[in-house]
Computed example of a mutant assay.
Amino acid sequence: MDKETLDLIQSIPKDVWLQLYNDAPKPMLRQFGKLGEDLAKTLRLITFPVQCTAFIQDRIDEGFKRAIQKVPEERRVTPPEGLILDIADKLKHHDSETLVGKLYVELLSASMDRERNNQAHPAFLPIIGQLSSDEALFLLRLSKKKPSLYIKHMLTWDLVTKEERELLLEGKSFPFYDEEKNLLDMTLHPEEYFYPNNFYIYIEHLNELGLLEYTNEATSEDWKRWAEIKSIKYDMWCIQLTKFGELFFKCCTDALVSLDK
């Protein structure tokens, strides 16, 4: 919310706000008891000066309703006010049925869940707005393959095709974390993304956001066995979620898993 809007809100006497709130139609959030009442009051008071249409308010209310419904009643707690207002502002522009909207709902839901509010890191808020659907799918794939691999041409940024990948890795495996794993099963598939040519861009962007890390350095005796497999034409990179990325995935799991449905 910009400074001009906040200044406008703060300039209006509190008793005027309360009268406006009391005169407003009862929002859907009130059905959730005290937590719903508190959320509704905060949202109504903060959005009155800028509330243009009932459509926008209904969109915000629907997002908050979905967030509350995901939390068992006995675990519901009031989330930080700053987070409430920031997410409400985001939901004005993103329907809760969209991927980005779902991610905001998941963040809000975690923040009002006594058992999950440690997952609701405030830094996730600006990250959500920067994610494409391909990048969200990328995070989902990394969560399922630990660690994941990708094969890259040594001298170019051209994508390695499915046929090249299979020819190079078919039937090859070696131990990761005391478990023998098939290299093909661990390898990411650029062709499954909507914009496959952005595959390397996604890696760099998610790395800059602090969500993933990658290396092609020999960090163990097992990894050195790659030298027996790779050729002068290809290189193999190990890629995985960072601890921060794992926390983000835990917080927003339901929204990300929905990409596979």
Results as ranks from 00 to 15, higher is better:
Glu4Asp: 14
Gln10Asp: 13
Pro13Lys: 03
Pro13Met: 07
Leu18Cys: 06
Leu18Asp: 13
Leu20Phe: 09
Asp23Phe: 08
Ala24Arg: 11
Lys26Gln: 14
Arg30Thr: 12
Gln31Ile: 13
Gly33Asp: 03
Lys34Trp: 04
Lys34Val: 10
Gly36Ser: 07
Glu37Lys: 09
Asp38Val: 00
Asp38Phe: 01
Leu39Ser: 07
Ala40Phe: 01
Lys41Asn: 07
Leu43Gln: 01
Leu45Gly: 05
Pro49Ser: 03
Cys52Trp: 10
Gln57Ser: 11
Gln57Thr: 08
Arg59Glu: 05
Glu62Thr: 12
Gly63Arg: 03
Phe64Tyr: 05
Ile68Gln: 02
Val71Trp: 02
Glu74Asp: 13
Glu74Gln: 15
Arg75Ile: 05
Leu83Asp: 01
Leu85Lys: 12
Asp86Gln: 14
Ile87His: 01
His93Cys: 12
His94Pro: 01
Asp95Phe: 13
Lys102Pro: 01
Leu103Pro: 01
Leu103Cys: 08
Val105Tyr: 02
Ala110Trp: 01
Ser111Tyr: 00
Met112Val: 01
Asp113Ser: 08
Gln119Cys: 02
Pro122Trp: 03
Ala123Lys: 13
Phe124Trp: 03
Leu125His: 11
Gly129Glu: 06
Gly129Ala: 14
Glu135Asp: 07
Ala136Asp: 02
Ala136His: 00
Leu137Phe: 10
Leu140Lys: 09
Arg141Leu: 12
Leu142Asp: 01
Leu142Cys: 09
Lys144Tyr: 08
Lys144Trp: 10
Lys145Ser: 12
Lys146Gly: 01
Pro147Met: 08
Pro147Ile: 01
Ser148His: 05
Leu149Phe: 15
Lys152Val: 06
Leu155Gln: 13
Leu155Glu: 14
Trp157Arg: 14
Thr161Ala: 04
Thr161Gln: 12
Lys162Thr: 10
Glu163Cys: 04
Leu167His: 11
Glu170Thr: 06
Glu170Gly: 10
Glu179Arg: 12
Glu179Trp: 04
Lys181Arg: 15
Leu183Val: 04
Leu184Cys: 10
Leu188Ile: 01
His189Leu: 13
Pro190Met: 10
Asn198Gly: 10
Tyr200Cys: 11
Tyr200Trp: 09
Tyr200Asn: 06
Ile201Leu: 15
Tyr202Val: 03
Ile203Pro: 00
Ile203Trp: 03
Leu206Gly: 02
Glu208Ala: 15
Glu217His: 11
Ala218Arg: 14
Ala218Ile: 14
Thr219Asp: 13
Glu221Tyr: 07
Trp223Met: 13
Lys233Pro: 04
Cys238Phe: 10
Leu241Glu: 00
Leu247Ala: 09
Phe249Lys: 05
Cys251Gly: 02
Asp254Leu: 15
Asp254Gln: 15
Val257Glu: 14
Val257Asp: 07
Ser258Arg: 09
Ser258Gly: 04
Leu259Met: 11
Lys261Gln: 08
